Amino acid sequence: MEVVNLDTREKQNAFMNPARQDILRLLQLAGRPMTPKELADKMGISASSVTFHIKKLVELGVV
């Protein structure tokens, strides 16, 4: 497992966002890649919102 360094308050806040935590949880439970549309359907939010959150997770190096 790779270690992600959350060394600033900004990075910590970005990681702890509830929607981003939901995305990470759903991806872990699925055990496979999921599209923003699949995640959006499960979360009850728009695919564009999921895409926004995924981009933030990519910037952090989490996904």
Rank of each mutant, 00 (worst) to 15 (best):
M1F: 04
V50S: 12
G31S: 09
K55F: 14
M16Q: 05
L60C: 05
A47G: 03
V50E: 13
N5F: 09
A30V: 00
P33F: 04
Q28Y: 13
G31N: 11
T51N: 12
N5S: 10
P33H: 06
K56Q: 12
L29M: 08
L27C: 05
D7S: 12
R20P: 07
M34A: 03
R20H: 04
D22H: 08
L29D: 08
T51P: 03
I54K: 15
V63F: 14
N17K: 07
A47Y: 01
L24C: 09
I54E: 15
L26D: 01
S46C: 13
I54T: 15
R9D: 10
E59T: 04
P36F: 04
I54Q: 15
Q12P: 04
Q12N: 05
M1G: 08
R32Q: 12
S49M: 15
R20V: 06
E10V: 05
G61S: 07
Q21H: 04
L27D: 00
L6Y: 00
K56S: 11
N17L: 06
V62F: 11
M43P: 01
R32C: 10
H53K: 08
K56H: 10
R9V: 10
E10P: 03
N17S: 09
N13L: 09
L24F: 09
L27A: 02
V50Q: 12
L57F: 11
A30W: 02
V58R: 15
I45T: 15
T35D: 11
L26P: 05
K56Y: 09
K55I: 12
A19T: 11
K11S: 02
R32D: 04
P18F: 03
T51A: 14
S49H: 15
Q12R: 13
M16E: 05
E2Q: 03
F15A: 06
L57Q: 09
K11G: 00
E38Y: 11
V62D: 10
K37C: 00
A30R: 00
Q21L: 13
T8H: 01
E2L: 06
A19C: 03
V50I: 14
K37Q: 01
L27S: 01
L39K: 00
F52T: 14
P36Y: 04
M34N: 01
L29F: 08
H53R: 10
T51V: 10
V58A: 15
A40C: 12
L26V: 02
K11C: 02
A47R: 04
M43G: 00
L60D: 05
K11D: 00
P33Q: 07
T51F: 10
L29G: 01
V58T: 15
V63I: 15
V58S: 14
A47Q: 05
E59M: 01
E38K: 08
A19Y: 03
I23T: 02
E10Q: 09
Q12V: 11
R32S: 09
V3P: 01
A47H: 04
T51R: 13
M1R: 05
K56I: 13
F52M: 14
T35W: 11
P33N: 06
F15N: 03
D41C: 01
Q21E: 07
V62R: 15
I23G: 04
I45Q: 14
L39A: 01
Q28A: 13
K42T: 00
G61P: 09
Q12C: 09
F52W: 12
Q28F: 11
M43L: 14
D41M: 06
S49L: 15
L26C: 01
V58E: 15
V63L: 15
